[in-house]
Every structure is written in C-alpha cells, then in structure tokens.
C-alpha cells in the first residue's frame, strides 16, 4: 500500500531522514519508535506531502504522493494541533470534516455515537471551542476526525501521550478493533514501547534518520526494544 524508495530529507545539509526502501503492505499495523529527533514526524510529514523530499519518493497505491491529491480521500491523519481547527466547536469541526468526505449528517451522528465511549462523554454536544479543551481531549478530537472519513490508511503521531490511563486503554482497544474488523493500514509512532508493541504487528526503529531495526512483533519484541533503548 505504501512504498518508500530512496527517501531523503535534509535541513541545511544535515540529513534527518534516509530510508532506502520500505514497504508497508495493506492492512499492516506499522509502529514507529525512536528517540526525539530520530525523524518520526519528518517521515509522517513526507508521507502526507506536507514537506518536500530532497530525494526519492513515497508512493501510495502506486502513485507518488508529492503534488498529488488522489491519496487524500482515503487517508486519515493526526500529527499535532495544526490538524485541528481550534476556533470551531467539536460538533462544527466533525460536521466540516464529514462533509469533506461526503458524509451525511446521519453518518456523522452515527459515527460520533460510536466514539462516545472513547470521548468519555466530554466532547459530544459541547459548546466549547476546541482551543478551550485540554490537550488530551484535543487529541481525542483529532483522532476521531482522522477516522471520520472511513480511511484505509491511518497515520497517528504519538497518539497515547497526553491521554489519561483509561483513555489509553480505550484507544488501544479501538485501534486493535479497527485493524481486525476493517483491515486499516495503520502507521503509529510512540514513545511508549508497551503500547506500540501491543497495537502494532511490525515495529521499525529509527535512529538519526536511519532504519536500524525492522521487526515483526513477537513475544520478545518488548524486551528487545527495551534493551535497545536502555542507557
């Protein structure tokens, strides 16, 4: 589904990402870990055509993403608050996003109902603007908006940070469910090794822009990662 070939990104001559080849097949849950500055967000931004690669390309369904819009209808993403429109209420924002993906009001209402547990009753129907919500609730709104368009590809940057423990568990359940039920291709970055190994079938470790590990998640994966990151 996603093919990366010879992808390079440099800022002021310093290479921050260098991936010679990487293939993410349809339905895979792909976890990305690495310390700060390893290039996780840069990689996601390149996939989403938010920045321009110095060399190489990312392809989705055989079409390169750069300067192309054909991937947008089936790709949902949430990287940071820049993906929210913070002066809208959640209801207005979901309606707006829903319309972009040709959802009817009924579809949107049904979807929000299904998210009610994840939202913990704090978001639906609220008249507050998104900018007045806590970071955790903003994250929930962003994740929900990414899912609203029935995406085939879901890209989330550190979805677990800022969420409370119950919400983290609910999110894990939600992601696992989406994967088994709908076979969504998921790309998730995380600093929490526990969560990412529980959700993802494949873990890639980035260090200073290079892929240093690419492992299928198994019994020992968590231990392997912990010993890798141990100082």
């Amino acid at each position: 589904m996603i093919q990366v070939s010879n992808l390079k990104k440099a800022y002021n001559g310093v290479t921050v990402l260098n991936i010679p080849a990487l293939n993410i097949p349809k339905g895979e849950s792909f976890g990305l870990v690495g310390n700060n500055g390893a290039g996780k967000t840069t990689f996601f931004r390149l996939i989403l055509d938010l920045i321009e690669a110095n060399d190489g390309e990312v392809q989705i369904d055989g079409q390169k993403v750069a300067r192309n819009e054909s991937w947008k209808p089936f790709t949902g993403s949430f990287l940071d608050e820049g993906f929210l429109i913070d002066f809208l209420t959640p209801g207005e924002y979901f309606k707006f996003v829903g319309k972009l993906y040709n959802k009817s009001e009924g579809d949107i209402a049904l979807f929000l109902e299904s998210m009610e547990e994840f939202f913990n009753g704090e978001i639906n129907g609220s008249k507050k603007m998104i900018r007045e919500f806590s970071k955790g609730n903003q994250k929930k709104i962003g994740i929900a908006a990414a899912l609203l368009g029935d995406p085939q590809i879901l890209i989330l940057d550190e979805p677990f940070t800022a969420l409370d423990p119950s919400s983290q568990i609910r999110l894990k359940r939600l992601l696992n469910d989406l994967q088994t039920r709908l076979g969504i291709t998921m790309l998730i970055s995380s600093h929490d090794l526990n969560h990412v190994t529980e959700v993802c079938k494949r873990i890639v470790v980035l260090e200073k822009g290079d892929v240093v590990k690419d492992i299928a998640t198994g019994e020992d994966t968590l231990k392997e990662l912990e010993s890798y990151f141990a100082v």
Partner: peptide, 14 residues
C-alpha cells in the same frame, strides 16, 4: 496558519 496542515491533509483539493 494555525490549521494549515489540516487544509493540506484533509480531503480538500487545492
């Protein structure tokens, strides 16, 4: 500015 990434990644043709 504040939500430009949203404009670029959601299903909004340029």
């Amino acid at each position: 500015s504040a939500h430009f990434d949203s404009i670029l990644t959601k299903n909004i043709p340029a």
